[in-house]
Design a protein around this nucleic acid. Structure first.
Lengths: 146, 146
DNA sequence: ATAAATTCTACTTATTTGGTAGAATAAAAG
DNA sequence: CTTTTATTCTACCAAATAAGTAGAATTTAT
């Protein structure tokens, strides 16, 4: 399961992708139903990973910095949840030896864990912010999907 | 990432599958490098889900109750980690409406979440205790794999 | 100067994780 | 029938994580 933080991040990014302009935190909080103060910390984290940019001061706010088609669930998962693999020794981006492992080469479960990681990565990378936005447009019968 | 509990459970099950007989908790703890007291609680949980059976008293211990080929990572994940889906509203076995969701039918992320769940389930169900045991036999060049 | 926004620092509260301790119970073996 | 060896049950415990909140500081448009 995702943490609330990750889930809110996805919803905030989809909302930003839909707006395509500078949006106040308060707007995102209202429309995506996210506690404003909590959202602030989420946006700062997204900013530190260069997914969004901010403008300070009055009439400030946030914009999407990257192409929504290039932001996948894998990216967001890694930022807020950490490794996609089920065990540290099977992780691509956060590799570390398993604390309880004697010998990685003879580990009974590692091979399976790497295969699962590959399949999970596939699943997460095949879903982007753009895809979710498009999907919901279709579902709601928005003109653009005709 | 898996909790230690789930990871230990997998290793204990693989060990039991390999032994094919009654095994003392102490044996499993030693060979699979699991704190004995912690392992006890894991085995009880596996027993409550009918994956293993126990014999009490002197010369007691645990045995595998099901065919190792029929125990998949999905089963173990559900016991120790809960839902496989990323959000409750996308879960098959643990469905519940998302606390922060206004309308499930118009939710922007649910469709993607269900697709990811399907793919993840595929990945987890395609790996069994028997598969891991066989995989490690091959890797170690055990006669049986010739 | 003032208002409206982001940013930074510091809490808080509840739950989960990864255990440990020790007594109770069950059964085998002498 | 007592001792030994095991599982089982009840109850803890410390550290980390999750999900926020409070409030001051800063930045910028008007």
């Amino acid at each position: 399961m995702l943490t609330q933080k990750a889930k809110y991040a996805i919803k905030a990014l989809v909302y930003l992708a839909q707006k395509k302009s500078l949006v106040r935190t308060q707007d995102i909080a209202d429309k995506a139903r996210i506690p404003k103060k909590f959202l602030e910390s989420i946006l700062l984290e997204l900013k530190s990973h260069k997914l969004v940019a901010s403008v300070q001061g009055a009439s400030g706010g946030y914009t999407l910095l990257k192409d929504p088609a290039s932001i996948t669930l894998a990216d967001i998962y890694r930022i807020f949840e950490g490794p996609i693999a089920l065990v540290p020794c099977a992780s691509l981006n956060f590799y570390s030896p398993c604390a309880d492992c004697e010998n990685e080469r003879t580990c009974v479960i590692r091979k399976a864990m790497i295969e699962v990681r590959d399949q999970t990565l596939d699943a997460l990378e095949s879903h982007s912010i753009a895809g979710m936005l498009e999907g919901s447009r279709k579902a709601k019968g928005n003109p653009k999907s005709k």
